[in-house]
């Protein structure tokens, strides 16, 4: 079995409203030097599969069909083999 961690971020040129508000909050707490805050999400999937290449092909299809909207998001993922 494989553990897949998919990291999703808003595209760089899109304003991240949550990140902007969080940056302001950090600054109001006195943290200096905060240049930018971007908030993404992590999707974890436990997935059966033969090997890493088969799993990564399946994950790409999942991202294309549902998990990611390419108009606004970029993504990246990691696959780890885990005990059943």
């Amino acid at each position: 079995m494989f553990l897949v961690k998919i990291y999703v971020q808003l595209k760089k040129d899109i304003l991240d409203a949550q990140g902007k508000a969080t940056k302001k909050a950090l600054e109001s707490l006195g943290f200096e030097g905060v240049q930018d805050v971007r908030i993404g999400k992590e999707i974890r999937i436990l997935l059966d599969g033969r090997d890493i290449s088969e799993v990564s092909e399946k994950v790409r299809q999942m991202c294309d069909k549902l998990l990611i909207n390419p108009v606004m998001e970029d993504y990246d993922f990691k696959i780890m083999e885990v005990e059943k």
């Binding site: 808003l10 899109i14 304003l15 409203a17 949550q18 508000a21 909207n69 108009v71 606004m72």
Partner: peptide, 15 residues
Amino acid sequence: ESGLLPGILLQNENI
């Protein structure tokens, strides 16, 4: 999201 129209709706600028 279904692709019948182009673009996307994001979280309001002021949240």
